[in-house]
Design a protein around this nucleic acid. Structure first.
Lengths: 179, 179
DNA sequence: ACGTGCATGTAAAGCGTTACATGATTAC
DNA sequence: GTAATCATGTAACGCTTTACATGCACGT
């Protein structure tokens, strides 16, 4: 499937960038729907270079330190755009350890399960609050063709996702208390 | 982390079962939050057998065909229950190819992105309708300690998850039409 | 001088998917 | 008879994580 390839290609399409910058993105904004370690990014960049999808320019930082700035090639851009326009199969349902435990909830006492839910709620609420605040930083909707549009809609999607998860946890808890 | 181990252990805890049955579960109800192929299940069962977490009894089906029925051991049950009660880190945010594409939406025409959203909506709606119908088959809420309780709450969670995703897709679409 | 961040890689191990491989049983 | 389902495994490949490994630049 080579999804990492296209994630990286998309970032290089936005603007010439380095492996270090790409890794940082994967740990910040993009982490809301994708992730990769630098140990995956650097080899993939070299592979894309071999394939002629990107080019590389070495730039000096200070006296000795070098960084590699990658840019998209016409063939890389074409490949990326074709991937963008291809309607793919529905992604497999993501694995979720908390839901797995919930499936086996009848093995637990009410108190133990309540404790688990509360712990999960706390962590989810933190994530939710952070996302909500980041989203609120947009005072107006970016235009469809602005570079912020993707970031904006994906953030909104992340907020809705976390909201639904928290809603579900509240429902589960209410069900335990009622009985 | 050995999550597959605990998914299997939980199923064996519910009732003695075979690798084939476990694989079927992973392709049906459990697929809403976990998944594994039979090529992962069989080796893991043998590993659990080596570790003494389960025992195996060979049963004849018909004249020649054998099946292996696995049961939990006290040590396996203890291990499983400890895992159940341990509050783990928040799971990494699941990767999502559609969100990845949406992040790069500014590279697409409005029409192309609308087409992608519609295609995704259609598939999501199918999944949602199926889940909703399965959930509706419960005419009353199962008791916390009944074997159906886990299935019930996890189904509800899946319905809420898909609802939030569809809501997001509708928001994205409305945003495109408005402009 | 020291700590944090910039910058780039490799290696090993684990996890997951697809394909290969085989054979029995049951329902039509 | 033949197709679907039952039943169990292995092998190859690819993806992901964790750890190993190195060194520069900059602010205090």
């Amino acid at each position: 499937m080579r999804n990492l390839k296209y994630a990286i290609l998309g970032l290089v399409c936005k603007a010439p960038t380095t492996g270090y910058e790409i890794s940082k993105e994967f740990n910040h904004r993009i982490s809301n729907f994708w992730f990769a370690n630098h140990s995956q990014v650097y080899p993939e960049l070299n592979r894309l270079l071999d394939e002629g999808a990107i080019t590389c320019e070495t730039v000096l930082q200070g006296e000795k330190m070098e960084k590699k700035v990658y840019s998209i090639t016409p063939s890389g851009k074409k490949d990326f755009m074709e991937w963008m326009m291809t309607d793919t199969e529905l992604a497999p349902i993501p694995k979720d350890i908390f839901r797995l435990k919930s499936y086996f909830a009848n093995f637990l006492d009410t108190e133990d399960f309540t404790y688990l839910i509360d712990a999960e709620l706390k962590k989810r609420m933190e994530r939710y609050t952070f996302l909500k605040n980041t989203f609120a930083a947009y005072t107006s909707e970016p235009d469809i063709h602005s570079k912020d549009f993707g970031d904006y809609i994906v953030l909104e999607g992340a907020v809705l996702r976390e909201e639904a998860y928290i809603q579900w946890l509240h429902n589960c808890k209410a069900r335990l208390i009622r009985k």
